[in-house]
Design a protein around this nucleic acid. Structure first.
Lengths: 147, 147
DNA sequence: TTGACTTTTAATAACTATTATCGTTTAATA
DNA sequence: TATTAAACGATAATAGTTATTAAAAGTCAA
């Protein structure tokens, strides 16, 4: 970590209104250095290499702080508990970034909206996310070898 | 539940290769009757009204059986544990419906793909899902009243 | 229909991920 | 530097889910 990196982190914390602590900085640095979609546990294991006395709870708390401050994002807003999709129609979801409520929206209705109309329920869109769901190569191969 | 409903459920189970049991049928019926995105606990509470002796574990197992059989779907494939998004670029996710692995895909790359080209990593797309993330009315109001 | 075999079930223990508590330490700032 | 609020570590507690096991119910060939 260079001096300019440290200054940058200080500036980041200042604008987010959070304190600069050693633990926080190391969690941040490790997150930046990690690729993919690490779990708190994975972050903890790496941070622990540098701060052996750190607590898992501290890692959790800092990750949450970063997410609340918009410094990092969670991959999915609806982890936590299994939810069953009871709507059999082709539809999308309006997901509230704050309360995490999920509202269904007809596939047709969404097409209209994306052409400039407003969304139902006075929903205020912040970002769109397209999920492509399917099979990765490994699972395609597993499936092929089974049949 | 009519006789034809019962027959329909039997046919459904037959084609899925699973046994027809009373508990399974009641879980199925309640799921069909529920709107939104119920949690196993919520399903359990309703099923319990009809089968007081049922166990929560049975509800879980039947929900999983339905999902594996493609009779119902989960709202999100990545519930279970918090994941941090470390990729700051605008991107989408390739989510494997089997192993639930998440692969990042550049927003640009995705545009190309949707015009007919193939996806990276030999990913086999099954369905696309558009998520609109933002604020629901309630949270917009909460936010307005705070500031 | 019966008997052999398989699946499902209920009860409950166990496990994983996460959060709350609380006494101590550290950072911000006057 | 002293004060105060924020953050920390240890650990207990909780929520959601899964594993285990013996009993009950379902399946299927004869």
């Amino acid at each position: 970590m260079t001096v300019s990196d440290a200054n940058q982190f200080r500036a980041l914390c200042d604008s987010a209104g959070i304190a600069v602590t050693h633990q926080r900085q190391v969690v941040y640095e490790e997150l930046c250095a990690m690729h993919g979609h690490p779990s708190p546990e994975e972050v903890y294991l790496r941070v622990k290499e540098r701060i052996p006395a750190i607590s898992l709870a501290t890692v959790y708390k800092n990750i949450h702080t970063f997410i609340e401050s918009g410094i990092f994002r969670e991959v999915s807003l609806h982890h936590g508990s299994l939810r069953v999709e009871t709507n059999a129609h082709s539809h999308h979801h309006l997901v509230c970034t704050q309360c995490k409520s999920i509202t269904d929206i007809d596939a047709d209705e969404f097409l209209l909206s994306s052409r400039g109309q407003s969304l139902p329920n006075k929903f205020l869109p912040e970002r769109f996310s397209v999920e492509v769901l399917g099979l990765c190569v490994e699972c395609q191969q597993k499936q092929a070898s089974l049949s």
